[in-house]
Amino acid sequence: MRYRFESELRRWEARLRDDWYFVDLPPEASAEIHEWADALPRAGFGAVKVVARVGGTSWSTSIFPSASGVYSLVVGARVRRAEGVEPGEVITAEVELV
């Protein structure tokens, strides 16, 4: 299963001392992933393993369910620098479940 979406890059406000930045998957994609999640390899916190891509940068990671029911993808500093993206920008991302 592969999902391509646009989302605003945002800082995780729960831990202001840390620099964690996320994009949220659309509700429809999140609902579909949730239906399939029990059959997929899972990491801690209900995470689902994926290969992610922003621009020309891809990496192995996990998406995490949020309290609102959508999955969130962490976009690390290496990816943000390589793609020249800043918090507040709407970026195109892709995740493929593994």
Rank of each mutant, 00 (worst) to 15 (best):
K49N: 05
D18M: 11
A67E: 15
R53Y: 06
E94N: 02
E8N: 07
F64V: 13
L9Y: 04
I91M: 02
R42F: 00
L73R: 03
F64M: 12
F45S: 12
T61N: 12
A77V: 12
A39Y: 09
E83T: 08
V90L: 06
E28N: 09
V95T: 03
R2P: 02
G69N: 02
S60C: 11
A14Y: 11
E6S: 14
R15A: 14
R2W: 04
P27V: 10
L9P: 04
L73V: 05
S62Y: 09
A39C: 06
E96H: 11
A77M: 14
R4L: 13
R42L: 04
A29G: 02
R2N: 10
G69E: 01
G84E: 09
A82E: 15
V85S: 11
L25P: 13
P26N: 07
A29L: 02
T57L: 11
V90S: 03
R81W: 05
W36C: 10
R11C: 09
L9I: 06
S62H: 07
R10L: 05
V51W: 06
P87I: 10
S68K: 15
E35L: 08
M1V: 02
F5T: 04
W59C: 01
F5S: 10
W59Y: 05
G56T: 15
E32S: 12
R4K: 14
L16G: 10
R17A: 10
E89N: 04
